[in-house]
Each structure stands twice: as C-alpha cells, then as structure tokens.
Design a binder for these strands. Sequence first.
RNA 1: GGGGAGAUAGCCAAGUGGCCAACGGCAACAGACUGUAAAUCUGUCCUCUUCGGAGUUCGCAGGUUCGAAUCCUGCUCUCCCCA
Length: 422
Amino acid sequence: MNFVEELRWRGLLHDMIPGTEELLSKEKVAAYIGFDPTAESLHIGSMVQIILLMHLQRHGHTPIALVGGATGMIGDPSFKSEERKMLSEETLQKNVAGIEAQLRRFIDFDKGAQLVNNYEWFKDFSFLGFMREVGKHISVNYMMAKDSVKKRLETGISFTEFSYQLIQGYDFYWLWKHKNAKLQLGGSDQWGNIVTGTELIRRMAGGEAFALTVPLVTKADGSKFGKTEQGNVWLDGRLTSPYQFYQFWLNTSDEDAEKYIKIFTFLSKDEIDVLIATHQENPAARVLQKRLGEEITTLVHGKSELDSAIAASQLLFGSGTTEQLAALPEATLLQIFEGVPHYMLDKSLLENATNILDLLAVHTPVFESKGEARKMIQQNALSLNKAKYSDAAGTPRTEMLISGKYILVQKGKKNYYLLQFS
RNA sequence: GGGGAGAUAGCCAAGUGGCCAACGGCAACAGACUGUAAAUCUGUCCUCUUCGGAGUUCGCAGGUUCGAAUCCUGCUCUCCCCA
C-alpha cells in the first residue's frame, strides 16, 4: 500500500493537486508541513499533521517540518473572523523552541528528515527585495479571490495579515529551490496558502510543485475537536497531564472513535476492522476508545506514563476503594494524582477541625461556600477517599489520612482534589 | 432633524403597585440509570447562612407610596421607521 492509499483508507485525504499521487508513486519526495508557533506547545489538533509526516517517513519519503518563526510574526488570517493579536518576539522564540523540541519526539530528524525555521530565510530578506522578487508575481486580485480571506474582506483585514499567503508561498518556493521539496501538506484550511505557493514556484521559476491536504478533524456532535471544558488538550504533559490526555481519548463517542482510530493510530486495516467489529458487538466495553487512548498516549507520553494514567483511571472511576487507595505507596499516589489540584494545609487544621463544611469550604477552594458544600453533601455528591460522605455535620478525623498526609476529595464524579496535611 | 420601540439573573424571555429572589426555556452543576457515553428522570442554579432565615438585585440617578421590576422625573445606551 503506498502513501496516498494509506491516507485514503484512513480518511486522511481531503484534496490533492492533480499529479500529486503519480509523483508520490514514482519517486521518493521531500514534503513539508508548517507549524504555527502560537503557543509553547502543540495541541492535539496538530497531531494530525505530525502523524501525516510520520506516515510520509514510513513510506520512504522525506518529511520536512517547518516551524513558522517568521510567519508567526504575521499571523495566518485563513478562515479567522478577526485580526489576531501579535505575539512578542520573545514569546515567539520560546514557542518556536518548545515546538521544535516536541517535533523531535515524533520524527527522526537524522534520517534525512529536516526541521527548519522560516525565520532563517526571512530575517535577511529586505522589504523592498521581497516586494520586487516575490510580490510582483502575484496579483492582489488573485489573493483576494481566496476563500480563506473572503470573510475578512467584509469585516476588515490588515495589510500584514493579507500578505500572509505570500510569505507562506515564498516558504514553499524556498524549500522547493533549496531542499527540493516538491510537495506541501497541510490541513484543508491551508489549501489557499499552499496553492499560492505552487503558483509562485511556477511564476518565479517555471517549476512544478504539488499540494495535499487532510480533512479537518470533526466531532459527531458538532462541537470543536480537541477542546475540553478545561480548554485545549496539549501535547505537553505539564499543560495537559498524561492522565487527562488519556481520559480525553477514552471519552470519545462511539461514532468518532471509529474515525479517530484510523487517523490517530498506526494500527493496520485488519487490526482496526477487528476492533471495530468487536466494539460494535459490545459497545459498553469501549475497546475502541481504550485502544485509541493507549496507542496515542504511548506515542505522545510513552508507555510508563500510559500505565500510570490507566492505573489512575481505574482507581478513580473503576473499582477503586478506600482500601486500595490506602494501600498505595506514597510515590505512586502522587504520580497518579499529578494532574489533580493539590492543596497544602496545616495539620493542626485537621486536628482541631470540628466541621467538614468548614474544612472544605473555608480552608480549601473545593467548595465556594458552606451553603454550597451543604447542598452538595445533601445531594450525595461528596466522596472522601473514594467513599461517599453524606453527613454535612460530620467531623473530619486524622484517621482519614492516607499515608499519614493525604485526603482525596471528590466533588461529583469527575472533580478531584488532593489535600495534603503537614 | 422627526416619530416609535426597548433595556429583567450566564444567555433567551415572562412579569406592568403587595401572593416577586422574580413564570418558562437554554446553558451549567449534582443525583439516579448507564459504558467515566447518549437519551431519560430528579434536584440545584444572585450572595451568605447556625437551613430558621439574612442581605443585595430587574440600564443609571432621584422621587411618589405603608409597600416599586411595575407609577413619576431626569440621564445613559440599543433597535426600528421617516427625512
């Protein structure tokens, strides 16, 4: 199975410039994808692009990952409804460094693959030089006709953002010329920018270049992929803990899971067919979600982080009991609850405590007020150390402490807090 | 410039002197059920509370009244029609 066929059955193919498939089947191609340094870490929306590069490498082609040190200074207006806030150069540098480090985890940059930053070729390119060398080849009429900027022509777009497609287009030209990159990959929203690049290559050098885009990952219920109530799901474990990351995938709907397992894992078609059939026989077992979560958490965070994420999940949601919790070594406990809010309290608070409400509402942010705490407890929403606690007038005791230090507080099903007394 | 309509809790929206912390819907949160799902049902949903209550709200500032989201005066803002 070749690269394009692979993408096709996985649902990873949105559009190609005619001739792209032929090119890829007759020679080994260098292809690039750009990553925007809008934050210090990539989030799972970028995972599709990363996986695309990995597939490319697996099929013997040469991936080039471009980090947009220069384009990040401009801001991509594609399908955005408003002008973007500019990032400071300092932030940008930090973001570029963070993203480069992450990309190295997924792509082996020793085997011909390359990591580039377009700031390299833009930093010494003068404004007048750019105007004369690049701008002259593309008409404003052509640029305005793009769907990606149409909306903005009504509401307003700065010259800076409008020129973005030329900058990105020049990237493609530069990589085509210096790195023999004949193909640019990207999300479907990048089609307009990519095609400006192929056009620029044709007009500046009479060369031929190609484009391949992947579809936007969507959710069956229409909400935006990659977001939770807590915000973006990041690849950086410090921003989204491996536990939260694993949970995100585990909570995928049945319908989406069938789609995502093809996109986000490297499992073979046969394996996936079996998994889907098994899942449909017994959806409650959630074999798809579990496998999806295992595969991608391993890819992003590694096997040992996955194991503790699974251990934490089982303890928190599954059969976890007070006894099991109490039996955990302290180090394991802390590891499992790494992603859970931690509060340090003075031990005397617990020794002198007369009222559970007072402890949780006044001394910790678990509850906003005593009234709220009382209502929640009356509704049976509070658990301490995995056991329901329903006595609003109860007194907390030092015997509750796990490892002599901790109390695990649970508000509702999913909100955990770890109180540490010392 | 002239005429008209409106501003109520996170959002939509009812209420036109006391029965109003304010109908109803959405969102949110919790419980039951379940698969850590969906759907459904139940509860909570201005703030605090010793659960008895207490305090602060209906664009803003005054006023009338025993009593105002509701009546009066002024101001601010939004929308519509005509020029």
